[in-house]
Write a protein that binds this DNA or RNA. Structure first.
Lengths: 138, 138
DNA sequence: ATGAAATTGAAATTCATTTTCAAAATATAA
DNA sequence: TTATATTTTGAAAATGAATTTCAATTTCAT
C-alpha cells in the first residue's frame, strides 16, 4: 500500500531511488512507531545523515505517509501513518510516558464535527495530558 | 477564579507583583484567545519584552492557567485555559485557518478512556487537520 | 560508458526560545 | 521614610532543532 503511494509520488516528482533513502524508509516503516530524528539517526547506525533524514521525512509528510507530532519535548516526533488504523496518545506530564490508544467512537464523532463545518478531514491528533498510574502515587 | 489560583501560586513561590506582569496578564486573560509570543508583543505595544512574555507564560503554564499549543507553524501558541470550558481545533492544511469547536460527547469519551488506563487527565488537545470549505474549492 | 539531473553530508544558517547579567523595581524591616 | 534584601526586567548572548548551501557523489536514461 504505502509502497504504491510512494512509487507514484516519486514518479510524479521525478525523484530517484537512492541507497540512503531506501535504508531509511525500510527501517522506518518496519519499525512502525514514533521516533525523533536523533533516535532514527542512532538506529540507522549513523549511516544516514540528519539532513537526509529530515529531507526524507519531509517527502513522506508530503505524500501523507507520515505525521509529525509535537509533544511537550522540544524536538518533534515522526510516526508512520497507517491509513487503516489510527491511534491517539495519553501523555504523562511527570515522567513523559506515552500510552497509545484507539477509540472508534471518537473517530466517528470527529467525522461528524468535520462535516458540520464543511471541513474535509485528512488526519487528526488527540492528546490527553495528565498523570499515569505510577506518577499519581509517587 | 484565575486570580485566586494566581495569587496562591505567587504567594507559595514568593513572587512579586510587577507592573509588566500585571499589564501582560490582564491583557491576555481579557483577550481570551490564542496568541503567538510575537502577537502578544505587538498587542502590548512592545512595552513588555519578549523575555518577560516568555517568562510570564511559563509561570501561567506552571499553575495550569495557560496551555501551549504547537500547530504546524514553527512558533508556539498560548491560550488561557478556562476550566469550565474547553474547545478544540479544526486546522486547514492549505490556508492555516483555525476553527474552534466544542463537542461534549468527545469530552465524555475521553474521560472514559483516561479511566480505562488509570490515567488522571489534566487537559487534552484535539486537532483535526484537513481542508476548509474555501480551500476545497480552490 | 556518458552526461544531465538528483542526492548526499558537513558545515553554515536560521530563528524561536532560553539564559545571562547588570540595572531597576518591589517588598520587608528598622 | 530609609535601608536592605530579593525579585524582575530587557538587551544581548547562547542554545539547539530544523533548514539550507554547495561541492562531491550517485543515479539512470540514453
Amino acid at each position: 500500500m504505502w509502497e504504491e503511494i510512494l512509487a507514484k509520488y516519486f514518479n510524479e516528482k521525478g525523484l530517484k531511488k537512492s541507497v540512503k533513502r531506501k535504508k531509511f524508509i525500510d527501517f522506518f516503516f518496519k519499525a512502525d512507531k514514533h521516533f525523533s530524528v536523533d533516535e532514527l539517526y542512532e538506529k540507522l547506525g549513523k549511516k544516514v545523515s540528519r539532513s537526509t533524514i529530515y529531507r526524507t521525512l519531509k517527502l513522506l509528510k508530503e505524500c501523507g505517509l507520515v505525521i509529525e507530532q509535537k509533544f511537550e519535548e522540544k524536538n518533534r516526533r515522526y510516526e508512520p501513518l497507517h491509513l487503516s488504523y489510527h491511534h491517539d496518545h495519553l501523555i504523562c506530564l511527570k515522567c513523559g510516558k506515552i500510552i497509545e490508544f484507539n477509540e472508534k467512537k471518537i473517530e466517528n464523532i470527529q467525522k461528524k464535527v468535520a462535516e458540520k463545518y464543511n471541513f474535509k478531514m485528512v488526519f487528526h491528533k488527540l492528546e490527553i495530558y495528565g498523570y499515569c498510574e505510577k506518577c499519581q502515587k509517587s
